[in-house]
């Protein structure tokens, strides 16, 4: 094993997949001069050349549409949208084109496309640079949705996403890029649709995604003397590994879902729905979603902090569910 940052793990995945398959290319804003705002693409232009690392003008609809068009004609684009908030200006290309063309063509078109972007708050960037929009994509049939929380997952899942023949929305978290984690020295992939138990436990299941996985793990650790918490990270929302989640709930009888996205209409509600429908008898108490506030993300730090689940609020929710 070796320790790398999440950003470095992404870069390794891109490097390996670009080396493996000449059809893979990168496209996005400031990806050559800057390596993208996350820095995850640093050095790739020097390594692979301007033909395969395409820095575009400020035109998301053009370059995301270009990516869809390139995918249906045989290339494997990996597009980067600087912040997930900016998908609004190219949503047609994602929702009406990438997600639809295979079905509408009766299976004649194949769309091996990855769209990477970063979401999440906690950086005082206010409401247009802090959203967690995974539910928008998960709601749209035809898109896979991936949310890695660790360096190891980021690398293994990105490699799978690039090899997948379907459009994949790959959502990173801006506060995770600098975090470090262990990854295998040798090549590996993590299949889409495989959850991971990040911490085994007996009394309650906490399903958390992205940055919230780390907060849930911290909460579990701080409660270790009181309650045994199992933390499950689905890692991909579409496809969703319900078997792993159900197995955990069947063991613990309790479910808390933690997401950074606004609670209303969020993906957590769907996990609760599925658990309620599919293993109601195992539940000893009503499942709960602890999500972000149903508000635009405020700029000022204390207000922003109040909008996002944190270790203390997770701890409190766990306590109330097991009491």
């Amino acid at each position: 094993m070796k320790e790398v940052t999440y950003a470095r793990a992404l870069q390794e995945a891109l490097t390996e997949e670009m080396e493996r398959d000449e059809a893979v290319f990168l496209i996005g804003e400031d990806i050559v001069n800057l390596g993208g705002v996350s820095g995850a693409l640093k050095g790739l232009a020097a390594r692979f050349g301007a033909q395969r690392v395409r820095q575009t003008p400020l035109s998301e609809a053009a370059f995301v549409g270009l990516s869809v068009g390139a995918a249906i004609t045989g290339l494997r684009p990996v597009a980067e949208i600087m912040y997930v908030d900016f998908v609004t200006v190219c949503l047609d290309q994602i929702i009406n084109q990438a997600a639809k063309l295979r079905y509408m063509s009766g299976g004649q078109l194949t769309i091996p496309l990855v769209i990477r972007s970063q979401g999440g708050g906690g950086t005082s960037e206010a409401a247009q640079h802090s959203q967690s929009l995974e539910a928008w994509f998960a709601h749209t049939p035809g898109l896979k949705v991936v949310m890695p929380a660790t360096a190891a997952d980021a690398k293994g899942l990105l490699k799978s996403a690039i090899r997948d023949d379907n459009p994949v929305i790959f959502l990173e978290h801006k506060l995770l890029y600098a975090t470090k984690g262990e990854i295998p020295e040798e090549e590996y992939v993590i299949p889409l649709g495989q959850a991971e138990v990040k911490r085994p436990g007996e009394d309650i299941t906490v399903v958390a995604t992205s940055l919230m996985v780390h907060k849930a793990l911290a909460a579990a650790e701080s409660l270790a003397d009181e309650v045994s918490v199992e933390v499950v990270d689905p890692r991909t929302l579409v496809p969703l590994d319900m078997n792993c989640i159900k197995a955990s709930v069947q063991k613990t009888g309790r479910l808390l879902v933690v997401q950074e996205a606004c609670t209303r209409g969020g993906f957590g509600s769907d996990i609760v729905r599925r658990v309620t429908e599919e293993c109601f008898a195992s539940l000893v108490t009503a499942p709960q979603v602890l999500g972000g506030a149903n508000l635009p993300m405020p700029f000022s730090r204390p207000l922003e902090t109040a909008c996002i689940p944190r270790e203390e609020t997770i701890t409190a929710a766990i306590r109330s569910l097991v009491s």
Partner: peptide, 24 residues
């Protein structure tokens, strides 16, 4: 590569088809 129900949506898709030719 298909018609489109969304007005103006074909223009960026065409970039991609042309890009593939240029790339290859």
């Amino acid at each position: 590569l298909g018609g489109n129900g969304i007005m103006g949506a074909g223009l960026p898709l065409a970039l991609g088809s042309a890009f593939t030719a240029q790339y290859r």
